[in-house]
Amino acid sequence: MDQNGVPSKKKVNKKSVLIDDRVAEEITRVEELSYEIKIGEVTTHNLISVSPHETMIQVVELFRHKRISGAPVIDDDHLVGIISMEDLIRCLLKSDTNSEVKKYMTSPPTVVKASDPVVEALKVFVNTHFGRLPVLDDEGNLYGILTKGDITMGLLRALQRDYQIEELRRYRASHLFEDIESDRSSLILRYQIKPHDFTNGGAASSNIKRALIRLGAAPMIARRVGIAVYEAEMNLIIHTTNGGVIRVEIEPHRISIDATDDGPGIEDVQQAMKPGYSTATEEIRELGFGAGMGLVNISRCVDNMILESTPGKGSRMRMKIYLNEDSVGEASQSK
């Protein structure tokens, strides 16, 4: 990695722990970030520059002392070029170290603008052999120097921020009930389910499961709720005329799920509850649904389930999952 600044060794190691798999896992996020983040945000500011009239041997000393491999060349506050290790090597090969910097510097240098997104700098790095690019502000003054390493560090910092935000969300969500004092607190999530919308089938249950995990629910509880809601959601998609609504109420001691629709209703609820009984068409079975196990699955995943239906009017299914042992009595009582 091309290191322009002089971070201590310890700092570098700490950051490399963060790099690992996360980079691989977040490739698409990194790509997004390279458009979001501005070059100026990742550029190194504390500039070490040289004058065109310094000698090359002075540059060697400077690079060695500051542990850098390149620097902008400034004359009268103006950026006139850039001098790098490569230029130094050319000079050393000719044993010409007493020459002035202006003889070996790259001039005029390729520059990028601080207000451009990072991806612009990446393009330049890909298309050239340059190890560093001078960054100019909107007035054309030298703003700083950008290396590929700066970009990597900048992106990693941004990724880390992302993770902290997600962690913070989880933390906030999981303490929701502790932080808010009331005689009884609950959180209600509502999802509108469209009829025959197989494309989005299962989206509501995915979202509910994710919300529960964020709220700090045990994975098994989230799974049970996910399965029950998934089956209820598919029932609304497969069987209803106008779709329906799924309402999930989360309380510290229980989760209540209601799935309601306005038709067509179930002729014989008792029969509908029997394993294997299905009214689904061949077309729906080909999609992998209509096995006649939906309601059975739901009743196995929840502690309490009540299905009411009036043909021509609609159905309402109420499901409850109890979250602590004290409520189990309540559950078996109603079962």
């Binding site: 799974r223 598919m234 992998g288």
Partner: peptide, 12 residues
């Protein structure tokens, strides 16, 4: 179909 993945997500 996509429901395979939805099912997979819900069922871990």
């Amino acid at each position: 179909n996509p429901q395979v993945i939805r099912t997979a997500q819900v069922a871990d």
